[in-house]
Simulated assay, not measured.
Amino acid sequence: MSTGFSPYQLPAEYSDIRSATRDVCDAGVAPHAAEADAAAAFPQASFEALKAADLHAPHIPAEYGGAGIDALGTAIVIEEVARACASTSLIPAVNKLGTVPLLLDASEKLKQRYLPPVAAGEAMFSYCLSEPEAGSDAASMKTRAVRDGDTWILDGVKRWITNAGVSRYYTVFAATDPEAGSRGISAFVVEKDDEGVSFGAPEKKLGIKASPTREVYFDSVRLPADRLIGDEGKGFSLAMRTLDHTRVTIAAQALGIAQGALDAAGAYATEREQFGKPISGFQAIQFKLADAAMKISAARELTYAAAARSERVDADLTYFGAAAKCFASDAAMEITTDMVQVLGGYGYTQDFPLERMMRDAKITQIYEGTNEVQRIVMARELLKGKAFG
């Protein structure tokens, strides 16, 4: 029941990326998804499968030891991984989220130090922006970095940090000039083993249970001056530019979850019989499947269009990144709910993957900017005349 086609023909390299990723996920990710979800444990076996195929951080350029897959190819990788296991898809997605600030603004020395271990699968990278009192209002963060000679002293708390405790490296945003508001925020690389870094207990979540989410604490963490990413005071702008690119990865994740749900429900509908025939023969079921396929097709086109803009860094990337993330995640939540309904009582049980997919879909409407924030972003771009037309 896969609708993984596109009305326009993508170059063969992208079909090859999809096919190779799907093969890896069918063999090495999907079999572990339910167990990892039930145990709320990091999917180590799935990570190893991705690592062996060089799909754990596919976006890292070849000059740093990576696969060098472009933004569209990376979106396809994340889509296919999410089709099998949403939690596992956060490995390539968050590796990208954590490293894009370096790729955008870091010194060559910093890139050469931190990107190759991620490319080799020896380390993961997380992104620390949100705080207990600074979610959507990220500029009001309380984490501070104070200069002390040739070092910085970092103090504060970050919340909702994906893969915290598993990742070795963290891109951390902190106020270096609190009086300057958003223009007084800077970005740093922090290592898990830096003295003064610690982690809270794993959050008990509705979905993406196999991806650990923890608070990260910084207690007088002393950082060398060369851990600064880009220029002092440019961190908030860097954080927003990063999200322009990585909202595309959340769109891809949502797209993959929705596709997995349609595939599972379609296969069930062709086998399950009621009133003497498969339920796929009933119009009520056909309409649900058709609506899901239609919305997935639309989400895929928008996501791929946004990915292409991410690769080119087009002027309308902000709009398209927000639009793709918002549309695809809203569609995923609606589609997974409908696909649970297709299975009826079975859809509500853990014997089938639909209930997990429904739970996993919800977070895509929330993280990397809630969909309410995405609509604000889109409206601002429209009113500034930066969105299409």
Rank of each mutant, 00 (worst) to 15 (best):
2 S>A: 15
9 Q>P: 06
10 L>P: 06
13 E>I: 13
16 D>A: 15
16 D>V: 15
17 I>H: 04
22 R>K: 13
23 D>F: 10
24 V>G: 03
25 C>A: 13
28 G>F: 04
29 V>I: 09
40 A>V: 03
44 Q>G: 12
46 S>P: 04
46 S>W: 03
46 S>G: 09
51 K>Q: 10
57 A>K: 01
61 P>W: 00
69 I>Y: 08
71 A>P: 09
71 A>D: 11
72 L>I: 08
83 R>H: 15
86 A>I: 01
86 A>L: 00
87 S>Q: 09
91 I>D: 06
93 A>Y: 06
96 K>M: 11
101 P>M: 02
102 L>R: 01
105 D>Y: 01
113 R>E: 15
122 E>Q: 14
122 E>G: 09
126 S>W: 02
131 E>Y: 03
132 P>H: 11
142 K>M: 10
146 V>R: 11
148 D>I: 02
148 D>A: 14
149 G>L: 07
153 I>V: 15
158 K>Y: 13
159 R>T: 15
165 G>D: 05
166 V>D: 12
166 V>L: 13
169 Y>D: 02
174 A>L: 08
174 A>E: 09
176 T>K: 07
178 P>Y: 00
179 E>W: 07
188 F>Q: 04
191 E>I: 08
192 K>I: 07
193 D>G: 06
193 D>P: 04
194 D>H: 13
194 D>F: 08
199 F>R: 10
203 E>T: 08
205 K>S: 10
205 K>M: 10
207 G>T: 09
208 I>K: 01
210 A>P: 03
223 L>Q: 01
229 I>S: 01
233 G>D: 07
235 G>D: 04
236 F>R: 02
238 L>S: 00
238 L>T: 01
244 D>R: 14
251 A>Y: 03
255 L>C: 07
255 L>V: 11
257 I>H: 03
259 Q>H: 11
263 D>Y: 03
268 Y>P: 08
271 E>V: 09
273 E>L: 01
278 P>T: 05
283 Q>S: 14
285 I>V: 06
287 F>L: 14
288 K>M: 07
289 L>T: 10
294 M>H: 13
297 S>K: 10
301 E>D: 15
303 T>F: 06
311 E>R: 09
315 A>N: 11
318 T>A: 13
318 T>P: 08
319 Y>G: 03
326 C>R: 12
329 S>D: 09
329 S>Y: 05
330 D>P: 07
332 A>T: 05
332 A>I: 02
335 I>A: 09
336 T>P: 01
337 T>I: 05
341 Q>A: 14
344 G>I: 03
346 Y>R: 15
348 Y>D: 10
349 T>A: 09
349 T>V: 01
350 Q>G: 14
351 D>Y: 13
351 D>V: 12
352 F>G: 10
359 R>S: 06
365 Q>L: 13
366 I>A: 01
371 N>A: 02
377 V>N: 05
379 A>F: 11
383 L>I: 14
383 L>G: 12
385 G>F: 05
389 G>E: 12
